[in-house]
Every structure is written in structure tokens, then in C-alpha cells.
Design a binder for these strands. Structure first.
Ligand SMILES: [Mn+2]
Ligand SMILES: [Mn+2]
Length: 659
DNA sequence: GCGCTAA
DNA sequence: TTAGCGCAACGCAGT
DNA sequence: ACTGCG
């Protein structure tokens, strides 16, 4: 009608293809209110039609091309004068009362006939290169109605009307033999997912079940006595009961034929009520529709009646339908519609990030929520102060955490509350400025986190990250560690002097191997001695070497050091923890804050500071900058300049793999 | 902190 | 809508 | 084989 601009503006349009359908959520009643419109629910095949450049393709709900089954409908659709379009609707066969009949539909299609079918259309996603999916439903339907009025379809292609709220609409439709109602928010967009802005309400309790087996009939000529039904819950097959009525001669015979083709399997249920009797169990692959009056308390169907086989659903997707209380559904729908409306809000370019969320602060290009949240209750340190710490320290910490696989200790509330490690990026959502890095882990590869810059660092803090635990390797050479670490873990009873001596001894032993090492506090009670190395040898070699060093120290000073992680055996000694030296093991980074009261910071030290008077607790998020400002030189200045490696002979002597 | 699922 | 949940995972060591 | 530890 309006703008039928045949002259294209040189825009090469991507070929239109199948896309995921909007699916309705099952509700237990029809939602009320002016925001909702209501349509008849049909009992047929959901069908998406793509018209492109004169070609009509009709897809099933799962994207299968069923055009040839619907040849007559497809032919009629060619009467539409459009360059291209995507239409959504349901293919049905009407019975004598004008209600859609699924069994009649199957009979027609089984006979290869489509000339008596109807296609009810209720949505228009694309028209003449215009994407309508973000338009409100009522607007899409208005365009659809207008479009369908431009051609004569002899009542085979029909606009599915909607109605405003009417008292007793559902009982009325049910008395007319309809399947139910689909209620839709008039202002909802087409998301292509299951949505609560579309709610379906059924007249009868009916749903699909997996056919898990059958029982034999006493009567020759009857294909079977009943079908055994199941559904999946948490990936496990559950028994739902038997259905023995609703069949006719043809369906009995046809289904038995199909069942015989399936492989017999052992009884898939642990315990079954005895009344089920002997049955033949088959591979759970066939799906059928069953109407019933209710679920018994034992979880079985009451008065089930077979309604037909369904071929458009995979067995494993069949679960027990549970209708959502309509009040909850309606609230969720409201929220969905509001969220959808918020997204393209580019009205005021000056608007702050995350409009509608007050009190956010921008730090280094990252929007920080809840800046005043107290993260360290003992010090009263807020989230914003933590963020500012990492902003200030970014230059110093980034060389230790960027471009490597990175694990994170997250604390969404405060350090006295819940804490958890995270090393994968979440499957849904994700974090801005944080990327995936693929790491091969025993014959498969997994995705871990990586950041590259201060924005990534701050994004992780916004995400609740406090402690940064980089892996001992760079992201692009994960199998070749670029540092060794000795993590000195003192027993609570161990004298501080032993820790000091332990670190000094590690340093001296490294010197004997020609290796320069670096000292830092952990932010907690221990110390770290870190040895940067050229990525050259693999983890087994490096771990084996550090283990040998730890065991040698424990051997020489069994009163002070132990190389065994057992806490019981530690008593008053230092555990020389060499186990950090493995692919998936981590250690706290230099300059990371620890998520414990005191907000200790892992602080690089000069070896000259290694004295009993050393007080690691003096270095925390509030005090560290005083120290850094007062320093005339960086004790770790050479950390990234040192290029050193273990001599292969050493590894050989330890019978460790070289390369 | 945040997205998912269930109700 | 709200409530509740998960958010690492592997080798070492002791039983 | 199961459990605590880092
Ligand atoms: Mn430690
Ligand atoms: Mn340790």
C-alpha cells in the first residue's frame, strides 16, 4: 500500500533466511488488562514463511523446509506483491465446526494434499527490506492485515485477528472446540525466543509425551493395548502413565509399525507401580500428543486420550508442562516489554551509561555500580575506593595480569560475605573488555579469561573481582611457563624468622642455579619468591624442578621446612608450596589486593627488606602508595628485563622432560 | 554482580 | 515479578 | 574410593 518504492537504493540485502520463532509461555489463566490482546490458539503446525525475490519457502518450527508439503499454500502466497517478507503463522485443517483439527491436518498431509488447508497468519517480521521485529506487535499486525488484503486467497490464507479483553472469552472459545487462547502484549517486540509477552492458555490439559513403550493387546488385529508414556526431567526420563484410547484402526496399525522399527531397550525406569504390567520398551524417540483430565498425586495421567503423533519435536525436549500463574507471568511480561523499550535509547547522546540506574560512576571508561558499597568493613573501604586503587595501580599490576589466562576471586558484597573463584567467562552475558582465551587442557580446549588493559582490569573489579590470580604462563604460550614461584605458607605456629630464612634460602639456591629471583609479600601471612624465566620448558619440567628444590630444603632443614601440603604434618614449619607451578594452578599477582580484612596488598620487596622486622601487614590498599611514592627505585625493575632459563643439564639430572 | 531458572 | 543458585577443579595427601 | 587442601 504505502511506499511501494520499486527503485532500490543500492542496498544489497542479505538473503532472507529462517529465523527462530517467538514462543509463548504456558499460563494458567488469561491475563487481564488493556495491554493485552488475545488470539485464537490453533492446533496445527507453526510455520514461518520466507518470501524472497518471488521464491516462497515455508519452514517448520525447528527450521525444516516443508514447502513441498504445503505446495498449494506456497503457491497462493506468491500472489503477494512483495519484494520480500517473513510471515509467521499456523497451518491448520478445519473440521466441520470450523475448529482446527490436528488429526485432520495429518490425514491431509499424509495423503499429500494441501489444497484444503488454511494458513492463519499472526505476525510479520520483515516486509520489503524493512525489519519490523522491533515494532510493537499491534503495528506489525496492522501491516500484516493491510498486506493480506492486497490479494485474494479464497479463505486459505487468513489474517488471525486479535481481540481486546472480553469477559469469559476462554470458556466461550473452548465451547467452540478451540484449543485455547494466545494472549500477547500489544507493545511487545518479536524477540525470537520464548517470551512471557506471549502467553498461551489451554482449554484442555494436553501436552506432548515421549512414547517409551507399549503393551500388547489380547485381540489379534489391534496393534497394541496402550502406549507407555514418559517425559524428561533434569535430563532423566520419567514415567507418565499409559494411554489406551483415542486411536483408530489406522493409527493403531501405523504406530505399531513404527514401534516395531524401533530398537527394544531394557526398562528405563528403576521402579514402576505394579499395575503397569509387562510392556515392551523402546528407544524413546517418538512423540505424541495426549489430552487428559489431570495429574494424579503419583504423577500419572488421569483419563489420557491419544491425540496424534508429533513429528516436529525432538523427544529429549519433552518435559512436563507447568503453567505459570498468570499474575507472575503478567509482571514478567511487563518487565520484558520495558527492557526491550530501554535498549535502543540513544535519544540523548550525553546520557550517562546505563540510563535509569542512578548513582553509577564512570572510572576510566568503566561504569561502576554501587560506588559507596562497603567492601572492607573493618577499614570502611568502599567499592569506589577499591576501583580507584586498581585505576592507580593499573600501570604496575597490568604487566603481571594482562595477556595471560587469569583467575579471579570475586566478592560481590563484602569480604565477610560470599567469595568464589571464577576462571571462565560466563556463557551468557560476558564482561566488557574481557576476552576469551583458549587453553588446551588434556586433549580438549577450554575457554578462560584474559584482559589486555586497564579497562579490562576495572571491568573485572566492577564485576566483583578483588584478587587477581594470573596463571604462570602467557596466553599465547600456555604450555610454556614464563615464571617459577615458591609460595611460602607458614603454619600459624611457625616463627616469622623461619619464613624470612626460607625466602632467603630459596633466593640463594636460585642463585646457585644462576637464576635471579624476586621477593614479594603475598598480602597475607606468607611470602612469594618469583623467578621469571624465558618460556622454553614445559610444566612437568618446571614443576618437577621446583618440587626438587622444595624437597631438598625440607630434607636439609626438616625442623623449619616441609614440602608436603598436609596441614597436620606442618606444625610450626613452612610449607614450601611448589604446587603453584602447574598449568591450571595460580598464585596471587603482585599488587593484587587480598579479599580479607586489612585489605593487604601483595607487595614487591627489595631483598634488603627481608628482615625479621619486615611487616607485610603494613602494606595495604590505603598505605601502598605512600611506599611507592617514597621509593627511589622499583625493587622489581629488572623483573621483565631478566632473560634467564634453567640449564637443560639440571633438568636432565632430575630426569625431567626437556621440551 | 548478574544471568538463569523456577514459581 | 521475586527467590535461589552458580560462579574452579586438579593433584596431592591421608584415611 | 572418598575427603580435605591450596
Ligand atoms: Mn601462600
Ligand atoms: Mn600455597
Amino acid at each position: 500500500m504505502d511506499d511501494q518504492g520499486y527503485r532500490r537504493k543500492s542496498k544489497p540485502v542479505a538473503k532472507l533466511a529462517f529465523r527462530d520463532l517467538e514462543l509463548a509461555t504456558l499460563a494458567d489463566a488469561v491475563p487481564a488488562g488493556p495491554g493485552w490482546v488475545h488470539e485464537v490458539k490453533f492446533d496445527g503446525y507453526r510455520t514461518l514463511t520466507v518470501i524472497d525475490d518471488g521464491a516462497v519457502t515455508m519452514y517448520s518450527r525447528s527450521g525444516l523446509d516443508w514447502t513441498t508439503k504445503y505446495a498449494e499454500i506456497a503457491r497462493r502466497l506468491k500472489a503477494l506483491k512483495v519484494r520480500n517478507a517473513i510471515l509467521d503463522g499456523e497451518i491448520v485443517a478445519l473440521n466441520a465446526h470450523g475448529a482446527s483439527s490436528f488429526s485432520k491436518l495429518k490425514a491431509e498431509l499424509g495423503a499429500g494434499r494441501s489444497e484444503d488447508l488454511q494458513y492463519y497468519l499472526f505476525d510479520l517480521l520483515v516486509l520489503d527490506d524493512e525489519d519490523l521485529t522491533r515494532q510493537p506487535l499491534v503495528e506489525r499486525k496492522r501491516r500484516l492485515e493491510t498486506l493480506l488484503a492486497t490479494a485474494e486467497f479464497e479463505n486459505h490464507i487468513i489474517y488471525s485477528e486479535h481481540f481486546a479483553e472480553k469477559a469469559n472469552f476462554l470458556p466461550h472459545l473452548c465451547s467452540l472446540d478451540m484449543e485455547g487462547i494466545v494472549s500477547k502484549r500489544g507493545d511487545s517486540i518479536y524477540t525470537g525466543r520464548r517470551s512471557k509477552a506471549w502467553l498461551k492458555v489451554k482449554c484442555h490439559k494436553r501436552q506432548e509425551f515421549v512414547i517409551v513403550g507399549f503393551t500388547e493387546s489380547d485381540h489379534a488385529g489391534r496393534g497394541f493395548r496402550s502406549l507407555l508414556l514418559g517425559y524428561y526431567e533434569d535430563g532423566e526420563l520419567q514415567f507418565a502413565g499409559k494411554v489406551g484410547t483415542g486411536f483408530n484402526q489406522d493409527t493403531l496399525f501405523d504406530i505399531r509399525k513404527k514401534l516395531d522399527k524401533l530398537k527394544a531397550v531394557p526398562k528405563p525406569f528403576k521402579k514402576l507401580p505394579p499395575d503397569v504390567g509387562p510392556g515392551t520398551w523402546v528407544q524413546p524417540s517418538m512423540v505424541c500428543e495426549v489430552e487428559f483430565t489431570e495429574w494424579t498425586p503419583e504423577g500419572r495421567l488421569r483419563h489420557p486420550s491419544f491425540q496424534g503423533l508429533r513429528e516436529d519435536k525432538a523427544a529429549t525436549t519433552i518435559g512436563r508442562d507447568k503453567a505459570l500463574p498468570v499474575e507472575i507471568a503478567a509482571k514478567a511480561a511487563q518487565a520484558e516489554v520495558e527492557v526491550a523499550a530501554e535498549k535502543p535509547k540513544r535519544r540523548h547522546p550525553a546520557a550517562p551509561l546505563k540510563p535509569g540506574k542512578a548513582g553509577r560512576v564512570d572510572v576510566g571508561g568503566v561504569s561502576i555500580s554501587h560506588p559507596d558499597r562497603i567492601v572492607f568493613p573493618d577499614l570502611g573501604v568502599t567499592k569506589l575506593e577499591l576501583v580507584r586503587y586498581y585505576e592507580q595501580i593499573a600501570e604496575r599490576i597490568l604487566p603481571h595480569v594482562a595477556n595471560r589466562p587469569l583467575s579471579l576471586l570475586r566478592v560481590p558484597d563484602n569480604v565477610d560475605g560470599q567469595q568464589f573463584f571464577q576462571r571462565h567467562l560466563p556463557e551468557h552475558g560476558g564482561v566488557p573488555n574481557v576476552s576469551d582465551v583458549k587453553i588446551p587442557i588434556k586433549n580438549r580446549t577450554e575457554d578462560y579469561m584474559k584482559i589486555e588493559d586497564a579497562r579490562g582490569l576495572l571491568s573485572l573489579v566492577q564485576w566483583g573481582g578483588i584478587e587477581f590470580h594470573p596463571w604462570g604462563c602467557q596466553a599465547d604460550t600456555p604450555l610454556l611457563p614464563d615464571r617459577m614461584i615458591f609460595d611460602l605458607d607458614p603454619d600459624p605456629e611457625a616463627p616469622w624468622s623461619s619464613v624470612i630464612e626460607g625466602a632467603a634460602e630459596v633466593r640463594d639456591r636460585m642463585n646457585e642455579f644462576g637464576l635471579i629471583s624476586f621477593l614479594k609479600t603475598t598480602g597475607g601471612k606468607g611470602l612469594h619468591v618469583v623467578v621469571p624465566i624465558v618460556p622454553k620448558f614445559g610444566w612437568p619440567a618446571i614443576k618437577g624442578f621446583t618440587k626438587a628444590v622444595a624437597e631438598s630444603m625440607a630434607h636439609d632443614s626438616p625442623d623449619r621446612f616441609i614440602a608436603n601440603m598436609s596441614k597436620a604434618k606442618r606444625k610450626g614449619r613452612i610449607f614450601i608450596d611448589y604446587l603453584r607451578n602447574d598449568l591450571t594452578s595460580t598464585a596471587a599477582a603482585a599488587f593484587t589486593v587480598r579479599a580479607r580484612s586489612g585489605a593487604g596488598v601483595s607487595t614487591p620487596l627489595n631483598w634488603s627488606e627481608l628482615k625479621v622486622s619486615l611487616k607485610p601487614s603494613a602494606f595495604n590498599l590505603q598505605t601502598i602508595f605512600r611506599r611507592l611514592k617514597a621509593q627511589t627505585s622499583d625493587p622489581w625493575a629488572d623483573y621483565f628485563a631478566v632473560r634467564q632459563t634453567l640449564r637443560p643439564e639440571i633438568l636432565q639430572a632430575l630426569k625431567l622432560p626437556i621440551e
